[in-house]
Write a protein that binds this DNA or RNA. Structure first.
Length: 993
DNA sequence: CCCCAACCGTA
DNA sequence: GTACGGTTGGGGG
């Protein structure tokens, strides 16, 4: 072997397990012998031997060996007798395949290597290092994390089942550490399948974080006293020795005595007849035919080989850690394709944080070049792009449509961006294209223009795109994917495997401005994309995108995909570096399809009811208006606070209350109520008029305009990334602010109805934010009260004022309730005084008293503020961050405002996280109960979920929903306070609530 | 035509 | 005192 050679080391035991679980066991020989793993193994080998160049490895091997485990009694047992002690017997159908795979290896004329006392991984490690020392390149065919410690610039891994190369950046992105730190990481996290103990309570994320901070395990153990988290510190100190043993278990030996020298692994010519004989025995007809073609043999003339099958115990060497189906599935599910950045040229960053920077710099030297964009006008070219996306496993994707409303939008074209691996440096080169599908000609033409020429027919293009978008092995990257998801879903395409750069930015930087593409592009790429209005015009002259010239459309649309891919390359490693991957993957990304489906379903709103209410409101408002003019002595625009102020405080000379920030007299409801209390009749009428006109204009008049012409339902849009705390927001229409507090307002809710044969089911969390407060601040009395299910505000009042709960005056309870809410909002004496209509000094006394009774609350507030000042953000109980960059402002009121917001955010945000988790879990929970078909989740209103349920299924559905919601924090967080959910079903939203 | 302030609906 | 979005009036361009 010499410099420049390429050695392939195949982890035979690992592959067989992986293939066994990945390939359906349908694949049996006619006599019933299961051969699915053997089949996968043979196909993979053939592919690598004949056209490895066409896989993502991209090179042809000069040397190759298949390595197996010999037995499970290795030196590791001596270090730690419990090593792999908990493994279970392999599945019955797998047992005979171990022997068959060794036969297969020999049939391929390949070295079949195993050494007693050592695991396959140690042999692989030894060969890899030896080859590397000579200057050869190495590809380890395996996706086992235990081998990732071997990855270097010259040693790659290759996941044959996903056709994915794993290099340094991939290890970093998956585990948050460089490959050389993998040993330390595994030593800390342990491995349940191998029974490697590790340090209890330390998972991959924590381990990566600690390694980023301390450098390596030994340093960490030496300086463990510096760790702030008490429990973590104690765990690490107590288990230091266990960690050291674990390290010995996971560190691979690179000095295993080798039976075959590297030179003996030279790839030999195939013996076609021998291979075909084996393949025929296995009844692999397709592969037999291919091999026969390739070696120009007559397969029919070759007799199947006699292959002995070992069913029994003596079948050697299953390496069970690779065989834990649950582990494998989890890995496959959590790993939605990692970056495919090739690092052949550049040794990209040693830390994820540096990777983000390195890439941003790479983009600076390869700025966006719109002249390179292409317009795809024929199906063959589109197919070629799709094939390339399959190779790289990564594609940025964007749709162009006729509307911002995904329920109305007509698809006009799609754009794609790919990493171009043939250019160098690979990390910086991206190619992008636009596929026009429904552009029209003749803008300004009276006939409205016809279909533009040279566009791929919509159906043909969609069918090709469907294969790509639904392929789980290709990661689709989009900005605000929910939009594209809905548009494509309406065309029968359900996007699988995706990332959303908007959501990544949101998870990283909530509270630091918007997460729109143009802003992110400026911020991370220093590039200003073409403005939409420069392409489609604005205002009266604006046209829909189908009327945009295709060349202009290409520049605009392809750029969007290009920018999106570049953003992803920068944001993905940042997510890892900041330890936020989990939040993104568990709390953010899974909500995209959930919300998209809620938006798509919509809810029925009864036009007649609203119309009748509008009439009633119009009459009442007109009557109120007349009375206002009567009392004012003249007609004026009541809706103008300016004119109203002139009447009230000028003409009538009523005492003005507060002023607005522009110096106008305030005419707020609060001010008017105060004036009414003084006995003036006009202010009361104004308040009434305002309520009536508000209900009419915002709700009864506006809602019918949102009824979709086809579905006849109202489809709100949810924004996942527009609040600082993690709440959703709803718009067009906003269905999170439908009136409920007044009887008049509640009538509007009666217009939200279920479809025939169904009921609306409303399930809402009771006092969720106070419960979260009791949990995070750990207040014994509050915890007890919630555990006992008593009236929380009455309990608070009783504690503070010494009044027994029995027979408590409602005013006393009201004050306690206001204080409880005030606490959640980051209380101030000013605000509380305002709320209760008392003196500021009195409010201050209440707060003081409250802090005396519940000192933990004060502690929580102070420590939250200190945390916010130190880090610039606060965290929810699940680790979501809300940033407050102005928390150190020199402006006292600005600073105080930020402090209150920072105190509120973990409470509001944790509650938001809990309901997010519930929303993600609901569908699977219902499906598990066999009820998925009878229920549709329609709306979310911060602490409430509204479902449409088939009449007959309500009794079964209700408990599933209630318990899913109540258990939603588990298992991530075990709440110190129970969560309580109330649920009810009725014909309309008013009665259900 | 666009933007802001004021106001008010929800949790 | 926290977090939103929608409507209206009104001013500036």
């Amino acid at each position: 072997m010499k410099k420049g050679d390429h050695l392939f080391l195949i982890d035979g035991s690992g592959f067989i397990f992986r293939a066994f679980h990945a390939i359906p066991p349908l694949n049996r020989k006619s006599d019933g012998l299961p051969v699915n793993a053997v089949s996968g193994f043979c196909n993979m080998l053939w592919k690598l031997l004949t056209d490895a160049r066409d896989t993502s490895v991209g090179v042809t091997p000069t040397h190759l060996a298949v390595i197996f485990d010999y037995s499970s009694t290795t030196f590791r047992k001596e270090i730690y007798p419990e090593y792999k002690a908990n493994r279970s017997a392999p599945p019955e159908d797998l047992v005979p395949q171990f022997g068959l795979i060794r036969h297969a290896t020999r049939a391929f004329n390949l070295p079949c290597i195993e050494t007693e006392g050592f695991e396959a991984d140690d042999i692989i490690a030894t060969y890899a290092r030896a080859a590397e020392a000579i200057g050869a390149d190495v590809t380890i065919v395996s996706s086992d994390k235990d081998l990732m410690q071997l990855v270097t610039p010259n040693v790659h891994m290759y996941d044959a089942m996903k056709d994915k190369q794993i290099g340094i950046p991939d290890v970093i992105e998956k585990w948050g550490v460089t490959p050389d730190k993998m040993i330390d990481l595994q030593a800390m996290t342990g491995d349940s399948t191998d029974n490697v103990p590790g340090i209890p309570g330390i998972g991959p994320k924590t381990a990566a974080q600690l390694l980023e901070e301390f450098g390596d395990l030994e340093t960490l153990l030496a300086r463990a006293g510096e760790i702030k988290q008490v429990k973590r510190r104690e765990n690490i100190i107590a288990n230091a020795e266990l960690a050291r043993i674990s390290r010995k278990l996971v560190e691979l030996r690179t000095n295993v005595p080798l039976d075959m020298a590297l030179d003996q692994l030279t790839l030999e010519k195939q013996d076609g007849a021998k291979l075909i004989a084996f393949l025929k025995a296995m009844e692999f007809t397709t592969l037999t035919r291919r091999v026969a073609e390739a070696c120009d043999c007559d397969a029919a003339a070759i007799e199947p080989a006699a292959v002995p099958v070992e069913w029994g115990e003596e079948a050697r060497g299953p390496d069970l850690d690779k065989g834990d189906a649950a582990t494998e599935q989890k890995a496959a599910a959590s790993e939605t394709a990692n970056t495919e950045v090739s690092d052949k040229q550049d040794l990209e960053g040693n830390k994820p944080s540096e990777l983000a920077r390195t890439r941003a710099e790479a983009f600076a030297s390869h700025p966006i070049d719109r002249t390179r964009y292409v317009t795809i006008r024929d199906i063959a070219t589109l197919q070629a792009w799709i094939a390339e996306a399959r190779e790289t496993g990564l594609v940025a994707f964007d749709t162009e449509t006729t509307s911002l409303d995904p329920m109305q939008a007509e698809l006009v074209g799609v754009s794609l961006a790919l990493q171009d691996n043939r250019t160098s440096p690979a990390s910086a080169m991206i190619k992008a294209a636009y596929v026009p599908l429904a552009h029209k000609t003749g803008v300004g033409d009276l006939l409205g223009g016809g279909h533009a020429e040279n566009q791929i027919p919509m159906g043909e293009a969609l069918s090709a795109l469907k294969d790509l978008l639904e392929d789980p092995s290709v990661l689709k990257i989009a900005q605000n994917l929910k939009y594209d998801y809905l548009v494509m879903k309406r065309h029968g395409i359900v996007i699988q495997s995706f990332d959303d750069t908007m959501l990544m930015s949101y998870v990283l930087d909530a509270g630091k401005g918007n997460h729109g593409m143009d802003g992110l592009s400026e911020k991370w790429l220093g590039h200003t994309p073409i403005a939409y209005k420069d392409v489609a015009g604005s205002g009266k002259s604006a046209v829909t995108f189908d009327l945009v010239d295709i060349d202009k459309a290409t520049a605009y649309a392809a750029e969007d995909a290009d920018v999106t891919l570049r953003l992803w390359l920068v944001l993905k490693p940042r997510l890892v570096a900041e330890g936020l991957t989990r939040i993104y993957e568990r709390l953010e990304r899974p909500l995209v399809p959930v919300l998209a489906e809620m938006e798509e379903r919509g809810i029925t709103v009864d036009r007649q009811i609203l119309s009748r209410l509008s009439g009633e409101l119009a009459q009442k408002a007109a009557a109120a208006e007349d009375e206002v003019y009567e009392l004012a002595g003249e007609r004026f625009n009541i809706g103008s606070p300016k004119q109203l102020g002139d009447i009230l405080f000028g003409k009538l000379g009523l005492p003005g209350g507060s002023k607005t920030k522009t110096g106008q007299w305030s005419t707020s409801a609060q001010v008017l109520e105060d004036l009414a209390a003084e006995g003036a009749p006009l202010p009361r009428k104004i308040v009434d008029w305002r309520q009536l006109t508000k209900l009419k204009s915002t709700y009864t008049d506006a809602l019918p305009g949102y009824i979709h012409p086809v579905t006849k339902r109202v489809h709100t849009g949810y924004s996942l990334a527009s609040t600082t705390t993690g709440r959703l927001s709803s718009s067009e229409p906003n269905l999170q602010n439908i009136p409920v507090r007044t009887a008049e307002g509640r009538k509007i809710r009666t217009a939200f109805i279920s479809t025939p044969g169904h009921k609306l089911l409303s399930a809402d969390y009771s006092q969720i934010e106070l419960r979260v407060l009791a949990h995070v601040a750990d207040i014994p009395q509050l915890r007890q009260a919630f555990a006992d299910g008593v009236d929380i505000h009455a309990m608070t009042a009783s504690e503070m004022f010494g009044v027994p709960v029995e027979g408590m005056p409602s005013e006393v309870r009201r004050r306690a309730k206001a204080i409880n809410f005030g606490i959640i909002y980051g209380i101030s004496a000013f605000g509380l005084a305002n709320q209760l209509g008392i003196e500021r000094s009195e409010a201050g006394d209440y707060i003081k008293k409250y802090f005396e009774r519940f000192p933990g609350i004060k502690d929580y507030m102070e420590s939250t503020k200190a945390f916010a000042r130190e880090h610039g953000y606060v965290e929810t109980i699940f680790g979501r961050r809300a940033h407050y960059p102005e928390i150190k402002s020199s402006n006292p009121s600005m600073r105080a405002f930020n402090e209150r917001a920072a105190i509120n955010a973990p409470i509001q945000g944790s509650a938001a996280d809990i309901i997010r988790r519930a929303m993600i879990k609901i569908e699977p929970a219902l499906a598990a109960a066999g009820l998925a078909e009878q229920v549709r989740m329609l709306l979310q209103v911060h602490d409430e979920l509204i479902f449409e349920v088939e009449d007959g299924a309500i009794d079964k559905v209700l408990p599933v929903i209630v318990s899913t919601m109540e258990q939603a924090a588990m298992p991530a967080i075990s709440m110190r306070v129970p969560l309580k959910v109330d649920a009810r079903a009725a014909q309309n939203w008013d009665e259900a609530h």
